[in-house]
């Protein structure tokens, strides 16, 4: 079980996280939604201990990882796979070396076994045969999928996905969604998926949490979230701009803009 308690974090003089409370049960897939820049990536980084909270704690299977030293955290992180928002592949290494990084560092597999695992994971993300290429030779979507292969290479217990389908075409997005579901079902992986994509949220989520202005606005099952009458939640789900945002674009209020926006 993973639990975030009263997490606060300020970055660059901005109070980004303002008391986040969240529980993720073992084997569950939690989808985190929320506007750009609201702190979703920052929250994921706290779960891995890549950032230290200003206040609050993060408990993984009962251990408060905010209290661990960087050295102790290396042990904890071996149970995790993380897909970074911008892929964060190692530029100086081939795709194969990127994907097998965790295996090279922390496993006793032979070279042949590792090669087989790399080929298998690249196959899963729909990129067979790209082993010898370098990240610079790949498109944005391909980088993301290689990064996903790297995250799942060592079969982690927890997977953190930061916008896994952003920048992918609809079909590849669906493949990744199915993959997330499959990993959850077959390997009992506990997943946290940050996304803007409500279609994938619907497909993946056991629960959805919405981060808004530094706190969790709603944390419920997808059906409950869709049925919510909280205007902020509703607007996000339906992809609607707020009155103020409409006014900024059109120069007058949303009701007046109605005709203009539609036709």
């Amino acid at each position: 079980m993973l639990e975030i308690r009263n997490l606060h974090k300020s970055l660059g003089g901005k109070h980004v996280l303002r008391g986040v409370n969240l529980v993720v049960e073992k084997g569950e897939a939690l989808v985190v939604i929320g506007g750009s820049g609201c702190g979703k990536s920052v929250m994921l980084k706290h779960i891995l201990g890549l950032m230290k909270p200003d206040q609050g704690s993060i408990h993984i299977d009962g251990r408060d990882i905010a209290k661990l030293t960087e050295r102790e955290l290396y042990g904890v992180r071996q149970q995790f796979g993380m897909l970074f928002q911008a892929a964060a592949l190692f530029d100086s290494m081939t795709v194969a070396d990127n994907v097998s990084f965790a295996l090279d560092e922390h496993s006793k597999f032979s070279t042949a076994e590792k090669k087989e695992i790399v080929a298998k994971k690249l196959g899963i993300v729909g990129l067979p045969g790209v082993e010898k290429m370098f990240p610079a030779d790949l498109s944005g979507g391909m980088k993301k999928r290689v990064a996903l292969a790297r995250a799942i290479a060592a079969d982690p217990d927890f997977l953190l996905y930061d916008e896994p389908t952003t920048g992918l075409d609809p079909i590849m997005s669906d493949v990744i969604n199915e993959l997330i579901v499959k990993l959850k079902k077959t390997l009992k992986v506990t997943s946290i998926v940050v996304t803007h994509d409500m279609a994938s949220a619907r497909k993946i989520a056991d629960r959805i949490a919405m981060l808004h202005e530094g706190t969790i606005r709603i944390h419920a099952t997808p059906d409950e979230v869709y049925a919510s009458d909280d205007p902020i939640v509703k607007r996000f789900i339906n992809g609607q701009a707020s009155e103020e945002q409409m006014k900024e674009v059109w120069g007058y209020t949303a009701t007046q803009a109605g005709e203009g926006a539609k036709g």
Partner: peptide, 8 residues
């Protein structure tokens, strides 16, 4: 950060 995330 990716290095650290990969426990290195």
């Amino acid at each position: 950060d990716a290095l650290r995330a990969l426990a290195t």
